[in-house]
Amino acid sequence: MSVQPAETAVVPGARAPGTAASPGAPHRSEQLTVRGLRKRYGAKEADVLQDVAFVLREGESLAVIGANGSGKSTMLRCCLRLIEPDTGEIEMLGQDVMSARERSLRRLRAHVGFVFQRHNLVPRLSVLSNVLHGAQARAASPRNWFQATAPGRLRAEALACLERVGLTELAGRRSDRLSGGQSQRVAIARTLMQRPRLVFADEPAASLDPTAGEEVMELFAQLMRDEGVGVLFTCHDLDHARRYGDRVLALRQGRVMFDRAVGEVDFDGLRQLYGPVPAAERSPREVLYG
């Protein structure tokens, strides 16, 4: 995001940072460093990721683009070892991910938010319980995970997270009775409850209408500005990549095609990355929203 700290106050809905990390600090340390990442799903299959390398710095956003099946989701999951990579070096928040044992891996994941294309909220539980789940790693007792039993302190914190995504009035609603946009914002509130230092988002706006998608992307932008959280997001909307990414990483068949600052990316030339799209195959999104 090419937004200076000075602009923070002008953004509507921007709130004071909760846990203060100094935005615009002169020294931006690396939050995530990946080298030589390789993954294939089966012995007989082709490599899904080959020699992928990139760096994400504090308070920076990296937009990952690439055609369907180019390996974006796999890359994000591999960084947190939700999928076990075959080889590679991953250093996250100063820790070596590949050598981490189960316990330290859990502790590391606790600091990293992950927002999915499909919100992945737990159905049948209330919105507030879903947000409380974000604190599972630091509030280890099961009674902290449910709205009915959690102590007031955690409930208040969860409500504050909901307030930041503008959904306090839905706290008691069952999470399977929400619209797609509301669900995704609740998922972000759950991530906020983690007090994340780094956020991964896999096509967070892809199943939302343009307005809701914009709101979701804006929430990530705020999180970066206010708290210096690094954001790694994938998207198919090049406009989002241009406006919300500081850097753009393009994947093609599991290889990094380029990784450069957003100002140096020729977005019009990029459309070839996806091949020409005949009019008949235009997505409903394009047809509906131009």
């Binding site: 590391l108 994941r109 992950f114 999915f116 992945n120 789940h133 099961p142 991530t191």
Partner: peptide
């Protein structure tokens, strides 16, 4: 499996 993956990703234990 979606919500389960989400909880794994935020550092939940198996019991969680």
């Amino acid at each position: 499996p979606g919500p389960q993956e989400a909880l794994t990703a935020l550092g939940a234990r198996r019991s969680g």
